[in-house]
C-alpha cells in the first residue's frame, strides 16, 4: 500500500474527522514527488499545481466540490454492514469494518443523498476509497440501488462518483450479486427516461467498473485515474511482460472508446451541470 493511502488526503469538508488530517503543512505529491504546500493543494482541490496529479480525496470532499452550498442531504445513513459469511483472514471481517469506520468516520464505502449541482436536483452516490478500498458489499449495493430508485421516484438525475477496488471479498457471492442488483436497478432508470452520469475517479476497477460505473449514459473520468477490469499486477502476472506506458489510465480508456470525457477536478461540477442541461428536462 502506498504511503499516501495511510494518511488523510483532502479535508475540504468540515465534517471530516480531524485526526485524519496530517499534521504537516507540506505534502509530497504522489505524482511528481514534489513537496507542495498543503494550503495551496487544498485551494486547488487537491490537484498538484506542479504536475496536475489528482490526489485521492474523500466522498465528502467530492460532495462539497459538486453540490451547491448547503444543498446536500445525506440519506440512508442507517444501512449497516453485517458479516453474512463469518469471514476471517488475518482479522475477522467485523474488526476490519470497525477499523474502517473509525478511520473514515463513515458507516460504509458510499455516501448517498440528494443535492443540487448548479441548481439541477440530483440523486448522488459517492464512493470512498478509504473504506476497505471502496469495495462493494451488500451495503454499497443497497445504497447505490436506493439512490437509483430515489432518482426515479423524484424524477431527478443520477450521479455516481466511483472509487473502488471492486466487489468486497469478505461478503463473497453476496458482493458479486450487488453487480447484478445495481445493473438491474439501472434498467429501471433508463425506462424512466432519466439521465445517469458516472464519474470515475482513481481507482475504479473490477466489480464496480464491470457494473454501474461502466453503465452511465455519460462516463466521465478524472485525469490519469487507474481504471480497468483486472488489476495491473494480475495482468502482468498473466502475460509475463511489462505493461505498456499509460495502460489502464483514464486516457487509455478514452482512447479505446469506453470513457466519454476526461475532466479535471476543478471543471467537474460545471461539466456535469452543462451535461444535465442537455439531458435533464425536469
Amino acid at each position: 500500500m502506498p504511503w499516501y493511502d495511510n494518511i488523510r488526503i483532502g479535508g475540504l469538508n468540515k465534517n471530516a474527522k480531524k485526526k485524519d488530517i496530517p499534521d504537516g503543512l507540506w505534502l509530497k505529491c504522489p505524482g511528481c514527488g514534489e513537496i507542495v504546500y498543503r494550503k495551496e493543494l487544498e485551494k486547488n482541490l487537491f490537484v498538484c499545481s506542479k504536475c496536475g496529479h489528482h490526489l485521492k480525496i474523500t466522498s465528502w470532499d467530492y460532495i462539497s466540490i459538486l453540490c451547491d452550498d448547503g444543498s446536500f442531504q445525506e440519506l440512508d445513513t442507517g444501512i449497516l454492514p453485517e458479516d453474512p459469511l463469518g469471514f476471517c483472514d488475518s482479522k475477522p471481517y467485523p474488526v476490519r469494518l470497525r477499523n474502517a469506520q473509525e478511520k473514515s468516520g463513515l458507516n460504509e464505502a458510499v455516501v448517498c443523498g440528494i443535492g443540487e449541482i448548479d441548481k439541477f436536483p440530483v440523486s448522488l452516490a459517492v464512493m470512498d476509497f478509504r473504506f476497505i478500498g471502496g469495495s462493494m458489499g451488500s451495503v454499497v449495493g443497497e445504497k447505490v440501488t436506493r439512490s437509483i430508485e430515489r432518482a426515479i421516484e423524484r424524477r431527478i438525475s443520477l450521479v455516481i462518483v466511483s472509487a473502488s477496488g471492486g466487489a468486497r471479498m469478505q461478503e463473497g457471492i453476496l458482493s458479486l450479486m450487488q453487480m447484478a442488483k445495481t445493473a438491474c436497478a439501472l434498467t429501471k432508470l433508463k425506462e424512466a427516461g432519466l439521465p445517469y452520469i458516472s464519474v470515475l475517479t482513481n481507482p475504479t476497477t473490477a466489480g464496480v467498473m464491470a457494473s454501474y460505473a461502466s453503465l452511465g449514459d455519460i462516463v466521465i473520468a478524472e485525469p490519469k485515474a487507474l481504471l480497468g477490469f483486472a488489476g495491473p499486477r494480475v495482468i502482468q502476472q498473466t502475460i509475463g511482460e511489462e505493461l505498456p506506458e499509460g495502460f489502464q489510465s483514464s486516457e487509455f480508456f478514452l482512447e479505446h472508446g469506453f470513457v466519454d470525457i476526461i475532466v479535471p477536478r476543478n471543471k467537474l461540477k460545471k461539466t456535469i451541470s452543462t451535461l444535465l442541461g442537455y439531458l435533464y428536462s425536469g
Binding site: T77, I79, L80, E82, V139, L174, M177
Partner: peptide, 12 residues
C-alpha cells in the same frame, strides 16, 4: 439480494 441491517437515523 444482500445482507445488511438497518437502524434509524444514524448520523445524517
Amino acid at each position: 439480494m444482500g445482507v445488511y441491517r438497518e437502524v434509524k437515523n444514524a448520523r445524517p
